[in-house]
Design a protein around this nucleic acid. Sequence first.
DNA 1: AAGCGTTATATTTACTAAAACATAACGAAA
DNA 2: TTTCGTTATGTTTTAGTAAATATAACGCTT
Lengths: 112, 112
Amino acid sequence: MSYKIKSRIWIEADNNVLLGQGRVQLLKAIAKTGSLSKAAKSLNISYKKAWTLLDSVNKSAKKPVTINSIGGKGGGGAELTDYGISLIRAFDEINQNCWDFLDKQIQKIDSL
Amino acid sequence: MSYKIKSRIWIEADNNVLLGQGRVQLLKAIAKTGSLSKAAKSLNISYKKAWTLLDSVNKSAKKPVTINSIGGKGGGGAELTDYGISLIRAFDEINQNCWDFLDKQIQKIDSL
DNA sequence: AAGCGTTATATTTACTAAAACATAACGAAA
DNA sequence: TTTCGTTATGTTTTAGTAAATATAACGCTT
């Protein structure tokens, strides 16, 4: 069996992590469910962990990534901003490009 | 301040990690010092951790990456095989290429 | 044969990160 | 004004990982 190359990418802003695999996954779940608590449930992570992640994302980003509301109809909720939607799309694209790039590079090792 | 993109790559063989950042660093230290214990000291990690890492590397690789000897002149030691030397060179090269590639991709996010 | 600095490995201890638990605040709706 | 499902936090407990400690085996050198 031949070697496989794997990678993780993430984006930082001022030495703080802005986006990584897990954060993107969380944002997608928020977009799908309309709330942070439902997103957390769907990913089988605790609400607190999800909240900490999302808080970190919004604190690191140049512009808000989500708009969160407390109370009111349905108790509140969270939704992505246009900026947030653009960010996750760009992240996914770069990530896929990186994988494709690395798959080409791995032959340097297979041929050793 | 603009966003920065970061990455970690690693190589797997049959679902086991063969090489990553830490393992390459360890192999380089072995090459420099001629022994696993000195390599561990130079990296400020325990001998056991270093040994476990190296053992995993050699078990995952198709061919031996180091030759270890016990006893004898100097007590023994460890040195890289030609294959091991080739592996870390290829890893470094692919890693650097990946960084360069990603630095070009990041502008997709800066322009959002 | 004794000493030395290694590799090799098991066992115990400490630390850190994750999970679990608990609770307050909010605002629309009934 | 009570209820409801959220967001927002603090505190405690658990678990998993890393470190520390201990010991055996090895083979050249003296």
